[in-house]
Amino acid sequence: MAMQVAVEKLFAIMPFLFGIGFIAPLIAQSMAVWGWEAPSGMSPIMLGLLIGGSWGLYATIRGRWI
């Protein structure tokens, strides 16, 4: 039962985890492939975490990605 509750809590924040776990590195690696620079001297992964994290947080709160 405790396991089930833990997994349910994990899935409840999964969009946020997806944002930092997948979207962030995907953005960083895509920028590297296409030779794009992050603004304001930021590293690509920092930009990825900023976008992926905030987008994932939005999806977690709203229940939809857009």
Partner: peptide, 28 residues
């Protein structure tokens, strides 16, 4: 639940080890 966790763990692991694009085009 198990399959979804495996799916997401695979994507996250591949992505943070430098294979995010491969994970995207193979599975996501």
């Amino acid at each position: 639940m198990v399959v979804q966790l495996i799916y997401l763990a695979t994507l996250f692991t591949m992505a943070w080890n430098g294979y995010a694009i491969a994970a995207a085009v193979c599975w996501w």
